[in-house]
């Protein structure tokens, strides 16, 4: 199963440290030394703020990715528990952007590269779960309120198992009017 990072709106304070963490880890620390105009600032997750919600949204690394199905040039593939974009192959056709129901993909400029007529080259950009980065996704690590978690197959299954246990216990207690079981409490 693919892994994914999940934001919790109850903990998020909308500070966007995750977005900076994302850029720094993908661009490399040299961005603090080079001309500020010579690197691109394209976080792979988006901070969403509505009337009553603040939470970052990013790729869910679907098991049957709609983006991958929609891609006309086979630039999207799955590997190592994640959905990835081969940006060299990508032609920026936006089909994946249209296919993704979460708005997790956007098209971003590539620093220093232009199209033939001099206009900006843009390709698809989305969360890659910090592939190849020691310590895992940067957003998870930098969040000051631990509002982001990396969800793995094991955890997702554990969670379902726990919920089934709780559900069984509470149903049992209700039927037999016993309150010996502690409900365990919600996390």
């Amino acid at each position: 199963m693919n892994y994914f990072v999940k934001g919790n709106p109850d903990l998020c304070i909308g500070c966007r440290t995750c977005m900076i963490g994302c850029v720094v880890v993908h661009e490399g620390k040299h961005i603090f030394e080079i001309d500020p105009d010579s690197y691109t600032f394209h976080p792979k997750l988006h901070m969403v703020k509505t009337a009553r919600l603040s939470v970052p949204v990013q790729c869910k690394h679907c098991e049957n990715p709609a983006c991958m199905a929609a891609c006309g040039v086979n630039a999207i593939y799955q590997e190592d528990h994640r959905v990835l974009i081969h940006t060299e192959t990508c032609i920026g056709c936006k089909a994946c952007m249209d296919a993704c129901p979460f708005g997790a993909i956007d098209m971003v400029t590539v620093a220093g590269v232009r199209q033939k007529d001099g206009s900006e080259k843009k390709v698809a950009n989305k969360c890659d779960l910090c592939q190849g980065v020691a310590g895992g996704p940067a957003c998870v690590r930098v969040c000051p309120t631990q509002a982001l978690t990396l969800v793995t197959e094991e955890e997702l299954e554990d969670l379902a198992k726990r919920k089934r246990m709780e559900s069984a216990r509470s149903t049992f207690c209700e039927v037999y009017h016993c309150d010996e079981f502690s409900y365990g409490g919600r996390e």
């Binding site: 509505t50 939470v55 956007d106």
Partner: peptide, 13 residues
């Protein structure tokens, strides 16, 4: 994309 982002955020809630 922005609209879909908002839907995804609501789902997270």
């Amino acid at each position: 994309r922005e609209e879909k982002n908002i839907k995804a955020a609501n789902a997270l809630f």
